[in-house]
Amino acid sequence: MKNRKADDMTDTLQAVTSEDTSIQTHNGYGTTLAAVTYLPAGFDAEGSYPAIVVSHPGGGVKEQTAGLYARKLAGHGFVTIAYDASFQGASTGTPRQLENPYIRTEDVSAVVDHLTTLPYVDADRIGAMGICAGAAYTANAAINDPRIKAVGTVSMVNIGQMFRNGWDGAMADADAAPVLAQAAAARTSDATGAPDGNQFPLAPLRKEDAPSPELEEAWEYYRTSRCEHPNAPSWMTTRSLSQIVTYDAFHKAETFLTQPLLLVAGSEAGSKWMSEDLYGRAASTDKSFHVVEGANHMSLYDGEKYVEEVVGALAPFFTERL
């Protein structure tokens, strides 16, 4: 017997439309974000819709997992926007591949700025979600920006915690001091005009560089036909580390992260502890933690059955809170 509900969802997804969008930021750096806006089936420009900002992982671009989630959430009736971070992908800004966490947080609010200007978006019903580092930047943006009314995270990585404490949280903060020294040397090299060689991997650039099977899957995602994209080199400038190492995406979450919050992580994800940390720290009285059994960090990027489970949690969460 055919699953009518599944067929209806497939039809709705096929009816989602998308359009390229340029978003001028006001973060002081003058960058323009390249984005894709996804419009739900039966979209009516005279209507009023809830909207969701979707932020990509560190080293990623909108054409990968962020675009996948944006399209699927649009299938549930939301206007969604997936975008490339400043200095990355098709967005403007130099130096290329700068991963400045403060600007990445500002990018989330820049997309919110844009959404508030759209006549068909209800400015009181704007949510945000992200994947990996994009999830923690989303949480940080919500701490700063109460226009974000609900927050969803998937396979979240607090990029500062990761570089201080390691993928599994086993390192002490002080162990990251050599990384700060490396960043400082890169800045000096940049300032003196040395040849550009300051590339620091955000995912293994070669299979043999991966320290574990889980992170070998990160190499596979970014560097093979699984989901590679020419705009996603999966590295950042080494100078970025001088901002990243001391950054805490959850700073003041105990006071200001009061919005409804849904965290999603795989049961086998080495990064799961960072979602647990935010769950404990967030001031929100409406927070929940959805664990996807059997999934690791990368499974939730594009694994079909896992993504369907995650969207099955995110869609009703945003529907009820927006």
Rank of each mutant, 00 (worst) to 15 (best):
G166K: 03
T258W: 05
R4K: 13
E220Q: 14
A218K: 12
F163S: 05
R206N: 09
G30W: 01
T65W: 10
N231S: 14
N158Q: 04
T92V: 11
L263W: 01
P195H: 09
P213Y: 03
V112H: 06
D175N: 09
P201D: 01
A35P: 03
D11K: 15
G30N: 02
P178G: 04
E320N: 15
G193M: 03
A123G: 15
D124A: 14
A253F: 01
D209Q: 06
A15K: 02
D113T: 07
V54I: 05
A177P: 12
A295Y: 02
G67T: 01
D84C: 02
D277F: 09
T258E: 10
D44W: 02
Q88I: 12
V16K: 00
N100F: 03
V151N: 04
N27C: 12
S267H: 04
Y279V: 05
G294R: 00
R164W: 03
K149N: 07
G160D: 11
T192L: 15
N165Y: 08
S288L: 12
D122V: 07
E63V: 11
E309L: 11
D113S: 06
E214S: 04
N100V: 07
E276W: 01
S225K: 10
C227T: 12
G266A: 10
M274L: 10
D113C: 06
F87P: 08
N165Q: 11
A172D: 15
Q24P: 05
H297T: 00
E293K: 08
T285Y: 03
F87V: 09
H114L: 09
L115C: 07
H297N: 03
G30K: 00
G58E: 07
A184L: 08
T238K: 06
R321M: 09
E254M: 03
E63L: 12
D44R: 09
F318I: 13
V121Q: 04
A172T: 12
Q161P: 13
A74E: 09
L68G: 08
G58K: 06
S86M: 05
E308T: 13
T92H: 08
S48G: 08
A135H: 04
T105F: 03
W235N: 09
D286I: 10
Q24S: 10
P204Y: 03
T92A: 11
S275E: 03
A183Y: 01
G134R: 05
E268K: 12
V53W: 05
N296M: 10
F43S: 06
R321F: 05
T246K: 14
T258K: 03
L180G: 09
G47I: 02
L300K: 06
W273T: 10
G59C: 01
P233E: 11
G75K: 00
T25G: 00
T31L: 07
A66Q: 00
T117W: 01
V79C: 05
V16C: 02
T192R: 14
G266H: 09
V151C: 07
Y301A: 07
D209Y: 05
G169H: 08
S299W: 02
A174I: 15
L241R: 00
L33A: 05
L205E: 04
G266C: 10
R239T: 15
Q199K: 15
Y137W: 06
T258V: 07
N165I: 03
L241Q: 00
E220R: 14
A177H: 04
T238P: 14
Q14D: 15
R104W: 02
V61W: 10
S86A: 09
T10Y: 13
A184R: 01
N198L: 09
D190A: 14
R104Q: 12
T21S: 11
L180V: 13
Q182L: 15
